[in-house]
Design a protein around this nucleic acid. Structure first.
Lengths: 131, 131
DNA sequence: ATCGCACACGTTATAGCATAACGCAATTGA
DNA sequence: TCAATTGCGTTATGCTATAACGTGTGCGAT
């Protein structure tokens, strides 16, 4: 169960995200792809759903926006929790992973008998350049 | 610099959230307060902005919804990072805090020379009852 | 082969979330 | 008294996301 071949729309959306230097909203992606024949939000959202499912793209909940995954080889083995720093100045997003946090969260949640399906960690602030 | 006296609108919104057993969207709050004279979304959003600022309310980014803070006495001293479990079944939200996670995140972020302003941690899944 | 199914796609319409921009009223402090 | 601040009310608008419909294509089972 690797990543299937992407469809045309999925490739176009993936390309738009990959070549962007920051997160993009679905509607921004739509505008970028009008010349390639995109006309409606659903074309973007349907592609994004699949890309999210394949782990090629992340959704930033606090921005209602999407970024290409920057760990291109971790898609195979589900790589646990993903965290992000998001700079309010330049919009730069940095993805990172940490075993310690993952295990600590896992323990806390288990203590509630809670079954985790998806974990969101997003840190808003200012990066080194924008401080 | 404690929490100022709440205005009428702020009290109404706070009350609606406090008496709800789960998170509410701004529009749901609006509907609950129509009998009290609320007519427009901005009346809710303006009150929410202040309540968020005072630390009486939290915003759940992954739901676009709001909950009353369940740690009523921690508003004075800024109580670092707040995390939530959110049950997809019953909608129950549990707020919790953990020093270890806070310190670990702080260290990771400092390594990027990133200056944190707000941290979001939200865990979607199923609670014990809804497993 | 052809039937049925799953899946991607296209389109229109609508629902849900959030803010811009205007003006008014009350409060406060110089 | 005047200016600044804050809260409030209203209208309009913009941004984000999904519902519901139908089409076409590939592919395996009978």
């Amino acid at each position: 169960m690797g990543t299937p071949q992407l469809t045309k729309n999925q490739s176009l959306v993936m390309g738009a995200l990959a070549h962007s230097d920051g997160p993009m909203s679905a509607y921004t992606i739509l505008d970028k792809l009008r010349d390639q024949g995109f006309r409606a939000p659903l074309q973007v959202y349907r592609a994004l759903d699949k890309l999210l499912e394949y782990g090629l793209v992340h959704r930033l909940e606090s921005l209602n926006a999407f970024v290409a995954c920057t760990c291109p080889h971790e898609h195979e083995h589900d790589h646990g929790v993903t965290a992000f720093t998001i700079c309010e100045g330049c919009g730069q997003v940095t993805e990172f992973h940490d075993e310690a946090i993952e295990q600590r969260l896992s323990a806390l949640v288990r203590a509630q008998s809670f079954k985790t399906e998806k974990t969101t960690i997003e840190i808003r602030g200012h990066c080194k350049s924008c401080a």
